[in-house]
Design a binder for these strands. Sequence first.
DNA 1: GTTTGGATGGTACTCAGTACCATTACGTTG
DNA 2: CAACGTAATGGTACTGAGTACCATCCAAAC
Lengths: 247, 247
Amino acid sequence: MIRPSPRDRLAQAAFALFRERGYDQTTVDDITERAGVGRTTFFRYYRSKEDVIFPDHDRLLAQISERLLSERVRIARGAPADAQGTALAAVCDAVRLVLLHYLDEGDLARRRYKLTSSVPALRDREIATVARYQRMFREFIAGPMSELRAELMAASVVAAHNHVLRRWLRGESPDPMLELDAAMRHVSGLFAPPLAHGGAGTTIVAFRADAGIDAIVPVLQRITQDAAPAPSPAVSSQAARADGSQS
Amino acid sequence: MIRPSPRDRLAQAAFALFRERGYDQTTVDDITERAGVGRTTFFRYYRSKEDVIFPDHDRLLAQISERLLSERVRIARGAPADAQGTALAAVCDAVRLVLLHYLDEGDLARRRYKLTSSVPALRDREIATVARYQRMFREFIAGPMSELRAELMAASVVAAHNHVLRRWLRGESPDPMLELDAAMRHVSGLFAPPLAHGGAGTTIVAFRADAGIDAIVPVLQRITQDAAPAPSPAVSSQAARADGSQS
DNA sequence: GTTTGGATGGTACTCAGTACCATTACGTTG
DNA sequence: CAACGTAATGGTACTGAGTACCATCCAAAC
């Protein structure tokens, strides 16, 4: 068995010591001693004592930024049919990468969660990191939309992600990706206009009323005849929930 | 003119020095020297160098927590007619206090904003503070609602508040309270069911399909006939997506 | 005046993080 | 094999935040 890299030895020693004595009770010297490296080496691999437990979000952030950027030109090039939904969908998609990143870490992410849950400094650090993603999302969405709405969308996507992530970290979610998709649908539902506006296709409204179906159909027909009959395939469906149950 | 309290002198000296030399280039000793007090006194009034520019959020947090708590018993006591909207409305109301607090600070808040915008450590601190409010809101809402939805509501309210606050800090908002109210209406709109729910009322599902209206109507009829014409108040709508796009 | 308690100041310490330089390890080239 | 050059490592010394402790001062109460 070959000796792991200093970087890994440091991280391993740090996690072990934080668990044994707690974060505040562990000095960088303690970590380097156990890892068998010099103190200088620690700060060569990690900018700070906090950094030793966090993954390199910089890389992931850059990766996602790139993805969104290419998505943006795709949006700009194509027809801006539904800028709202498209931008949101892109972000919903991007956030999957973030969750996947955590899932890949497996138990490491859970050990980190234990720490961030109990050490204020680490919690704040985690929160600041999440805010970076949220900011990136906001700036991406802000193009085709009101600033406020972009802010709300970014915040909602991130909040939904955090919700699912936390559930998984606590062992409450057997299939977090599935839950994330459901949560993203929930978010999309918030921002989808009750009815699709413009465009072609047949708009169908189904509802339950005290009146019988026979009394309603004529009304439907009159409405749908105002619009074009049933043309192009490009359709963006909008499901509006009319009862109060949260999905 | 009487000498201001050491606390105020320290804050004033700190703001001045941060402006002159920058945050990182200013030491606590610099601050205490200009304020004419001992170094010990600084840490007696402020827990850290960062704290000297931030208001006492602890007090405001406690104040708002209390307010929400009394609101919660009011909700629990009265009829939980619309637990969704009531909890959200309470939080929307509570967040006005936060904005008012910033507005009261006037120029001080703007000077702080200059700092938090440029110094990463201070920005992170501000973000962590905001997260405390968001957490409180989430826990308050979580009672009568799904965890996810509570998370989304809290995040949205906070995001909307931040949006308005930032605009005011940048001098872009002549009447921030008015804007906040508008933003809160926007948020409420996100979470308000499109139609009044429950009762003998009407359940509506709207969607757009490639199929023509004539192909859909029979299906509708079959569905509506399965259920009683105008039955019990408890209705769970079925939103059928008729095309392949995400809702 | 004396006492007492709270506010203040000073000193010494720990520890994170930085800067700089010496040293070692290792692959390359002669 | 030896000399060289480069990257990784280690050591030392420093700055500055934050803590602990104790001495001092000041003002009000007695």
